[in-house]
Design a protein around this nucleic acid. Structure first.
Lengths: 142, 142
DNA sequence: GCCCCCAAGGTTATAATATAACTTTAATAG
DNA sequence: CTATTAAAGTTATATTATAACCTTGGGGGC
């Protein structure tokens, strides 16, 4: 029997998640999400734009940025500011604090569970968004 | 008696730190560092460029970026990727893991001590650089 | 079915951030 | 004083991101 495509399954479950929220996973959004899932590494917005555009699926950068912002907002993707790139969230649609280990050698990125928000809440600061990205060498590259 | 300027004292101590490392804190570097110290909030590279340029102290963006890279490398400043801005390190020249609490309302930024590297080292990833930035509301803005 | 609404996407232009590549200057060692 | 080399100047351009406005199309009320 054929191996199911993880990416396509993911977008399927994303559709469910979103429609439960009353939000549509349109064709463009699904395409972007699939590209992110299929990619081995995080992808830059313009790289993504080129990929979609060459298939006639995205018109211009703003379309891509809008979709990326949407996916990040919905918790389906993450933006890695260290490398200005985007990656699909590999941890399901429930909200969580993500952290990333970015290998500067092989560019591999591992998503891990980040620290709890409460740990940072001392001093009365109310954390709304947390970004934790570590750059270095992964086990394989050392 | 006159209040000593914290920023200028800081650049003084920076000079010592660097010359102990056999590295010069040139005029441009000192100017940039002082601007960062004097500023109440982190400053963008081009904003910094304008400030220096209007005093005839910086020629073009690359000069500013070079100095900023240098200061970050030496542990005298930090780059805040959430907001593409730079801030003087307020914790002395010894190396440390920094983390930042960035208020989205008043733009105030607090530098705190970050998590220890070893805490992230599980799984064999060798962390070389760590970025931890939290966005939210500071105590005063809630 | 038809129309209205409005969210999504298209389009054009441009802003903001950052760096490549090469030349000139100036500090320091020898 | 000169050779060496780090720093800064210079010009051009790459990369990332957004503003502002227009068009399309899906879905509900009628």
């Amino acid at each position: 029997m054929p191996t199911p495509c993880q990416a396509c399954e993911s977008t399927g479950s994303a559709t469910k998640t979103l429609s439960a929220r009353g939000i549509r996973l349109t064709e463009l959004r699904r395409d972007v999400l699939q590209q992110l899932h299929h990619a081995k590494h995080p992808i830059g917005a313009y790289q993504l734009f080129d990929m979609l555009n060459s298939k006639g699926k995205a018109s211009a950068p703003p379309a891509v940025y809008r979709v990326l912002d949407f996916l990040v907002e919905q918790g389906l993707a993450h933006k890695l500011r260290s490398i200005s790139a985007y990656t699909a969230c590999c941890m399901g649609p429930h909200s969580h604090q993500a952290a990333f280990l970015i290998c500067r050698n092989c560019s591999d990125v591992e998503e891990i569970k980040g620290p709890s928000l409460s740990a940072l809440a001392k001093g009365g600061f109310q954390v709304e968004d947390l970004m934790l990205e570590a750059t270095g060498l992964c086990g394989a590259c050392q």
